[in-house]
Write a protein that binds this DNA or RNA. Structure first.
Ligand SMILES: [Zn+2]
Ligand SMILES: [Zn+2]
Ligand SMILES: [Zn+2]
Ligand SMILES: [Zn+2]
Lengths: 137, 137
DNA sequence: AGATAGATGAGAATCTTTTTCATTACGAGT
DNA sequence: ACTCGTAATGAAAAAGATTCTCATCTATCT
């Protein structure tokens, strides 16, 4: 259960943390900004300060519960980290986000890093395009 | 020459634009933030307002003269767009940036987008890791 | 050279995220 | 269950990045 995940992260089980984790688990949008989380909680009647939302998301990220992504747009988006790595493809018209994982790309990235003497720690791959509803031709 | 590139972009050839483009061409750091550009110009005695730096970089981007990247760190970095696409590998310790282009990755990205019904417009791939000077083992 | 649309600079404004600090609430130990 | 010390929270301020406003200047065309 959630409480245990929070405890395992070395954090106290507080109402804001439980509610934020619940929201990330149950929200229809998987990829949400801090502001989104704040407003979605407000809509549910949970008055949790925006500063707390930022703090908790950052702590969850450090604990590996949450992943942060820097999509275009000037603000970070967060999602529950379910352990399975994936990358993203984002529609530049409607903002729709789809996830994918391509073993070939993953493998080549590791090789590219090695070839350059780097030890890969992480990577960020975002494809921008127009989804089936918004492509031109 | 620079002036023609600026003109071709439909922009007036002004001193700030010429100086910013020169700096991007000659700077030892290829990947610079707007603040970097502002300060590097100051160091050279060119007093160009920060707002102008932002405006010009954005215009250059729209004209395809400059590429903008959202590395981690909360601020965008810019580089001259020399027409040859490439991606980046960044050392999380010292910030060193290397460029690479991998045909396999590029190709798979296009395929992934297609498989999902997307028309790829652009993509952002950043590998984070430790460079040869900073890796552990 | 003169007219005009476009460009600049300074500062204000905006947006996102972090910090401060006084107050409140977990949870370990009794 | 009660107490206490520490960690967590909320509100507001601060900080950092970027954009906007507007009065002034300037490149370009005639
Ligand atoms: Zn779309
Ligand atoms: Zn995702
Ligand atoms: Zn390094
Ligand atoms: Zn580059």
């Amino acid at each position: 259960m959630d409480n245990q995940e929070i405890r395992n992260a070395g954090l106290k089980v507080t109402l804001p943390r439980v509610k934020i984790l619940e929201l990330l688990e149950n929200s229809t949008q998987r990829h949400v900004s801090a502001e989104d989380v704040y407003k979605l909680l407000l809509d549910k009647g949970e008055e949790i300060g925006l500063a707390t939302v930022y703090r908790v998301l950052t702590q969850f990220e450090a604990a590996g519960l949450v992943a942060r992504h820097n999509f275009e747009g000037g603000h970070a988006v967060f999602e529950l980290d379910r352990g399975e790595h994936h990358d993203h493809i984002v529609c530049v018209v409607c903002g729709k986000v789809e996830e994918f994982m391509d073993a070939t790309i993953e493998q080549r990235q590791r090789e590219v890093a090695q070839e350059r003497g780097f030890e890969m720690a992480d990577h960020s791959l975002i494809i921008y395009g127009r989804c089936n509803k918004h492509k031109e031709a």
